[in-house]
Nucleic acid binder design. Structure first.
Length: 293
DNA sequence: ATCCAGGATGTAT
DNA sequence: ATACATCATGGA
């Protein structure tokens, strides 16, 4: 495994917050007391059979990687944008977002591999985040590969072809419930080339949104989550139950029953390239506030 | 026991 | 375009 580090301050990246807000299901915390204990929390993800391990110490982001995955660090955390600059632009618009921005530092948008991101959010309707993780991990264990590096074993989420071997019943046995049909049909559609994930990157946000919704089980909210966290469309503004609650309470004048009118209100308000970041800070803020009050 | 969860689909208006 | 019931599963 190749080892090294990047110079980056905590204000620019806080791994723990970024990876544990609930935006990604593709990153795992390495269990303490194993091979890597004693140097703070480490996280890993896998992609195409390769492993990327990250941890922070002072103003350094350390990595261990196979297959050149260290080259993906910038893209996977949008490091070519300054989060402190983005937050500075967002500051001063209203009290609620200011409080959210102040409360969490270094929280960034994640950019995961498209396919695992898509499947994780196909599991998400009417589910709580811990259960989405269980479902996602169940699929990875049952249909994915195990990567062995240095005596440690890492889970690789299955690719499209591997997951196409999963029947609806297989998935229901993993506790996926009625969402099993979403996964089976969506995997079929991708296998047939009905939606080309690669093409989404080049499309404008709204076009990509309509395109990805061709997939069975992908509605407005899931579309926005996958576009934001798995494609990198910063214009996406996923409206879930938490955001809806926050909007009704703190931004009643911006509320709209129509999904896109509501989203457009916030794209206009926060800015097209910053609305995704604002969503993530608001989401974390309202969810944390609700559970601790 | 009853309710509800990072919603989407199918159907009717 | 909008309103409604229905959809599995498990934790509170």
């Amino acid at each position: 495994m190749k080892e090294g580090y990047l110079n980056i301050s905590r204000d620019e990246l806080d791994l723990e917050t970024t990876l544990e807000v609930g935006q990604t299901f593709s990153w795992y915390r390495l269990s303490e007391g194993t091979l890597y204990s004693g140097e703070g929390d480490k996280y890993f993800t896998t992609s195409k059979g390769n492993v990327l391990i990250l941890w922070q110490k002072d103003d350094r982001l350390f990595y261990k990687a196979t297959g050149g995955m260290e080259k993906q660090i910038e893209e996977r955390f949008h490091l070519y944008d300054s989060i402190t600059d983005i937050k500075e632009d967002l500051r001063g618009k209203d009290d609620i977002l200011d409080r959210a921005l102040d409360k969490y530092t270094g929280m960034r948008l994640i950019k995961d591999d498209f396919f695992p991101c898509l499947i994780s959010y196909l599991c998400s309707p009417q589910m709580r985040i811990p259960r989405i993780k269980k479902m996602f991990n169940g699929i990875a264990e049952r249909f994915g590969d195990k990567i062995k590096v240095g005596g440690e074993t890492f889970l690789q989420f299955p690719n499209v072809k591997q997951l196409s071997k999963a029947s609806e019943e297989d998935l229901r046995d993993l506790g996926i419930g009625y969402r099993a049909k979403y996964i089976v049909k969506t995997v079929e559609q991708i296998l047939k080339g009905i939606v080309e994930p690669k093409n989404l990157v080049e499309m404008e946000y709204r076009e990509a949104h309509n395109e990805i919704k061709k997939l069975f089980g992908v509605g407005n909210k899931v579309a926005d989550c996958v576009l934001l966290f798995g494609v990198g469309k910063l214009e996406a503004f996923p409206v879930d139950t938490w955001i809806k609650k926050a909007v009704k309470r703190y931004y009643p004048e911006k509320y709209d029953k129509n999904y896109f009118r509501l989203g457009d209100n916030f794209r206009d308000y926060f800015g097209e390239k910053k609305v995704g970041y604002a969503q993530e800070y608001l989401f974390h803020f309202i969810r944390n506030q609700e559970s601790s009050s």
